[in-house]
Amino acid sequence: MTLALDKLKPGQTATVLEVGGEPVLAQRLMALGLVEGANVEFLRTAPLGDPIEIRVDGAIALSLRAADARAVSVSPNP
């Protein structure tokens, strides 16, 4: 199953399939480890609904906007 990164639920983990969208943003995300095959954990959503907090491959948590996370397609882990 393919899902947009921002659609994961808190605590859910997934594998990154592709980082699409605007090239500059995509390269930013990839530089931070969001590359194909990386393991990503959805930690939480900010109290006001945006941005979201994720952890990539067990590294330090990252925060990005849901709109930007939408460009990352993931496959949720069972």
């Binding site: 943003l25 930013r28 941005p51 907090e53 330090i60 948590a61 925060s63 990005l64 906007r65 930007d68």
Partner: peptide, 11 residues
């Protein structure tokens, strides 16, 4: 276009 937001939340 709206700027992007991308930060680390360090320990």
């Amino acid at each position: 276009k709206t700027p992007t937001f991308l930060i680390e939340l360090p320990p």
